[in-house]
């Protein structure tokens, strides 16, 4: 990684922190649990690193590590989205019943 590359990544990093800061403060406290579940699911985007080591590395150990990486991250991604959906549906349901 060259110095220029690093500075660009640092720029992206710092700006993303700011976006995260402002967006998360607007999340309603009632939805803090779904927030944790969904951030947990999206942080599993780290799966892209495991996809590469499983799919294109020449080292057998790296492939094995990649396999487990993809496996664990998939548990997280599917599990995280499903539980978030379940929670959010409960919040939605009430709204409709409240109207009736």
């Amino acid at each position: 990684m060259t110095g220029v590359e690093f500075s660009l990544f640092l720029t992206i990093f710092v700006l993303s922190c700011f976006i995260g800061y402002y967006v998360v403060w607007r999340v309603t406290p009632a939805l803090h649990s779904p927030l944790m579940a969904v951030t947990n699911a999206i942080s599993s985007v780290i799966i892209v690193g495991s996809l590469l080591s499983l799919g294109s590395s020449d080292s057998l150990i790296a492939q094995v590590l990649g396999f487990f990486g993809v496996l664990f991250a998939s548990i997280n991604i599917f599990g995280g989205f499903v539980i978030t959906r379940r929670m959010l549906l409960m919040f939605k349901k009430k709204k409709e019943e409240g109207r009736s």
């Binding site: 947990n40 495991s50 590469l52 080591s53 150990i61 590590l65 990486g69 664990f72 991250a73 997280n76």
Partner: peptide, 23 residues
């Protein structure tokens, strides 16, 4: 679930040490 994210990060960092040309 958090523990799995951590574990995956460990696995990916080890892979990148073992097989840097992949990345």
């Amino acid at each position: 679930f958090h523990s799995l994210v951590g574990l995956t990060a460990v696995l990916v960092s080890s892979s990148s040490l073992l097989s840097p040309e992949t990345y």
